[in-house]
Every structure is written in structure tokens, then in C-alpha cells.
Simulated assay, not measured.
Amino acid sequence: MPSIPQPLDPHDDGSAAPAVAAALASYQDGTADATDVLTALSGARLLVPVVALLTESEVGEHGLRQEKESEMALPKLVGKDGRQAVLAFTGTDALVRWRPDARPIQASTLQVCQAAVNEQAAAVVVDVAGPVPFVIEGDVLAALAAVESGTLDQLADVTVARVEPARKRRWFSRR
């Protein structure tokens, strides 16, 4: 049986990270590009929705159909072309705008990207109902998922560079 993961931050109030909200607003205004949004998202917490899915029902004493069993499910968005996307939200306001009955699970952006690749989804759609929708797909999605799984060096056509910490330099000398 799957277990519910521990929250990344038990004191999280569910609001969007200010840097992420600012990057998305700038992206919408045209003063920032996708790289700026991805930079803001790279260390951010996202909320992945989980919804109840009816698996079995029965007719009750009053002749009405009622829930007997349900399971929690990760919903996916399916495009007109049949491609699937995992949904993620920057905060509870954006989650409730999409679906008020969804329950949030905290995950890092990298974890969400890895989950999308594992689910064979073509994209991650952030804040699908707004205020500013953003899509992570293609090579960027694959690279972010590979960073999380530690397999970035196995991706074709990706250059992996190791950045060493700068040595302290003296820019002046004492006499």
C-alpha cells in the first residue's frame, strides 16, 4: 500500500513562493522568459493535487446510490492530441481555483518532473487555471527529472559540467 509522504515543510501555509509568483507575473507581462521562471521554480515547493476516485458504490436504505469505496488518485490533464500532463500548483489559491475538492501534496519541482517522466506524461502544467499557467515539457522536463534521479549524465545531447567552488583570490596585496 502506498504511503503518504511527509511534508517538505510542516509549517508551509500553502501560499506561492514570492520569487515564483514574481517570475510568473513577469513572464506574463513579457519582461521575463521561461528561463527566469524555471530558475525560480528550480528550488520551489509545488503542490500536486490528489482527488478521491469512486471505486465502488451501492444503493443505500433510501434507494439512493452512495459511495462504498474510494481511492485517492493523481489526476492528469489530457490534451486534444492525447498527450498527458501532470498538474502542479504554486499555492493553494491556484489549486482551489482549479478544483476546490483536491488535496495538496508538497513536492519539489524536480520531484514533480521526475514523477511526470515516470508516469510517461509529456509535460508538467503549473497553475493550469491561473493566475499564470506555465508548461514544462520536452528536453527541459527530461533534464529536470534526470537531475532529481541522478541520471543527468545518461541523457543524450546534454552537456554536464561540474562547477568547482571559486578559490579565494586576493585582489589586492598588503605591503
Rank of each mutant, 00 (worst) to 15 (best):
L152G: 04
G79F: 12
Q28R: 11
E67K: 05
Q154K: 15
K76E: 09
A16T: 09
L144W: 13
A94G: 02
L54G: 10
D153P: 01
G14P: 10
L54M: 14
I105R: 00
D127I: 06
A23G: 09
A142F: 01
A17N: 08
A123T: 07
A129E: 03
A16E: 06
D81M: 08
A21R: 08
V78F: 02
S3Y: 04
T92G: 02
G30P: 09
V51P: 00
A22C: 02
V163W: 13
A129K: 03
S70V: 03
A34D: 15
L41E: 10
R174S: 15
S149M: 06
E164Y: 11
R169M: 12
E67C: 09
Q114W: 09
Q6T: 09
A115F: 11
A85V: 07
A107M: 15
V124P: 00
G138Y: 04
V20E: 02
R174H: 12
M1I: 07
L47H: 00
V78D: 01
D81P: 07
A123P: 02
G138T: 05
A166R: 14
L38T: 08
A17Y: 00
M1W: 05
V124E: 00
S42Q: 09
H11T: 15
A32G: 09
V51G: 03
V158Q: 04
E164S: 14
A22M: 06
L152W: 01
P49E: 03
A145Y: 07
E69Y: 15
A166F: 11
G43W: 03
Q84R: 12
R167N: 07
W171A: 12
L110M: 10
L46H: 03
G43F: 03
Q120A: 15
G14T: 06
V160C: 05
L152Q: 12
D36Q: 15
G150L: 05
A122R: 11
P49S: 04
A143H: 00
D101A: 14
G138P: 05
D12S: 01
T92H: 02
A34M: 07
V163C: 09
G14S: 08
L24H: 10
G63K: 11
D29E: 15
E61W: 10
A122C: 06
D157S: 11
P165Y: 01
R175I: 06
A166M: 11
R174L: 14
P18Q: 12
G14D: 06
G79V: 05
R65P: 12
D157C: 04
A145R: 08
V20H: 03
A34K: 12
A166S: 09
L53M: 12
V125G: 00
A44W: 04
S26P: 02
R162M: 05
D127R: 13
R103W: 03
L110E: 13
R174I: 13
G14A: 09
E137H: 14
